[in-house]
Design a protein around this nucleic acid. Structure first.
Lengths: 235, 235
DNA sequence: CCCTTTTCACCTAGGTGGTAAGAT
DNA sequence: ATCTTACCACCTAGGTGAAAAGGG
């Protein structure tokens, strides 16, 4: 579907007021949403600094090992239009709680039940698209994919990942921010961005899948889970 | 080693005149250079557009498959200093012929012999570091690695790879370019960059390794070639 | 004969859910 | 009981040189 408008679409800078975003993989998102999308959040384990021996032999420096956090699937991807091709933009995402409830999954009825009030909100973080900043022309040239975005339930995470509470519901949000070259651009900050929310991308954060139909749809549609597919060939 | 100065170090813009670059993995480069470094260049094969079936099922769009070109090993990596932390810089590399000769390898003497004049120079291309442009602070924060740079001998390559003639010698060059915000910045273009050449990184372009000791050093030091190592454990 | 291309097994690197054990 | 963690086999994706085949 197309663009949910940001709050207060009026009074926007001309560089963002015509911006539009189309969610990619819309039919897949909707398929998940009908079942109740779940996204895995795991603790980042905080492996020690890695120095693989190979690298050590070569005289390189150690680097942080890949975290154990999980990506989203489906991946949040949008096709942008209406940007100024020559202006600079920053693209980013955040996640807002959909309510102040905590949930549990009732296996007997295969449904989610409210189970008390939400836990204290995790530190609010944003994920900047790693190509930011870039010209409008470059953002519009192809699909923008947030496949580097990772979710964790580790409140102490220091890798900059998105921190979410398990068993809570979230709405991903997408923001287009015009990089205002004016000296006093702070004064116009509220005019220089436009936000998009796609209701079909909301999800429940979990540490393990609860709904078996979600598990099966993940296995069927995520290429990295091919090892768990039964032998039913698909064209 | 440290920085070979660019041509005409005088009259440089203050944003680049103090720039310095230290080559990483220097001892490995020197070990290769003592034997006569060789780098593989292969034709990019130009596979058809890939549409893996996975992606098709998910409603995605096809994308060009990875090319068959080869990276450099060792990878060209530098540690930068002396940049203005708040200024924008573009980093790039190019490759200049070391002479106008063509070579062949004499197996009986295990040495390279001149074998006529160079073939017409391939189209001169540059490789921009994919993080460009970025602030000086970000470039100086950690080692800058050109591991996405790929070499090909395909004169018709349209993936933007570096085109080299096999059996010719080359000197990699590294350039730091200050992004001048002045309107008439073209007038100062010659002042706004600084170039670095590390003699220990020069190499012979080949389609297959000629010197067996180079092959063995590549196998011993490149993690991706571990499958060809004999069972001699290294700490 | 000299050089290039193609294909291959074998790696690195890292994204999956399953499973069993652990925590509360 | 309910939720979380740790480890695992199994994938995707792609970087290696060997070996054989191809070309002039």
């Amino acid at each position: 579907g197309w663009a949910g408008e940001g709050p207060g679409a009026s009074g926007k800078n001309r560089h963002v007021c015509h911006a539009a975003a189309r969610l990619e993989m819309g039919s897949l998102w909707e398929e998940f949403n009908r079942l109740g999308t779940e996204m895995i959040v795991t603790k980042a384990g905080r492996w020690e600094l890695e120095w693989p021996g190979e690298l050590q032999r070569l005289g390189g420096t150690p680097f942080p090992s890949p975290s154990l956090c999980r990506r989203m699937f489906p991946t949040f991807q949008v096709k942008l239009s209406g940007l100024d091709p020559l202006a600079d933009y920053v693209l980013l995402m955040d996640f807002i709680p959909l309510d102040d409830k905590r949930y549990r999954y009732a296996f007997h009825s295969s449904s989610w039940l409210a189970a008390g009030r939400a836990e204290p909100a995790a530190p609010g973080r944003v994920h900047f698209h790693p190509d930011s900043p870039a010209k409008g022309a470059q953002w519009m040239r192809q699909i923008v994919s947030f496949d580097k975005l990772k979710l964790t339930n580790n409140l102490l995470d220091d890798n900059g990942h998105i921190i979410l509470n398990s068993m809570h519901r979230y709405q991903p949000r997408f923001h287009v921010v015009f990089v205002d070259p004016r000296r006093d651009s702070e004064r116009f900050a509220h005019q220089n961005f436009k936000s998009f929310s796609f209701p079909e991308t909301q999800f429940m954060a979990v540490t393990a899948y609860q709904n078996h139909r979600i598990t099966q749809l993940k296995i069927a549609s995520n290429p990295f889970a091919k090892g768990f597919r039964d032998g039913d060939p698909e064209p």
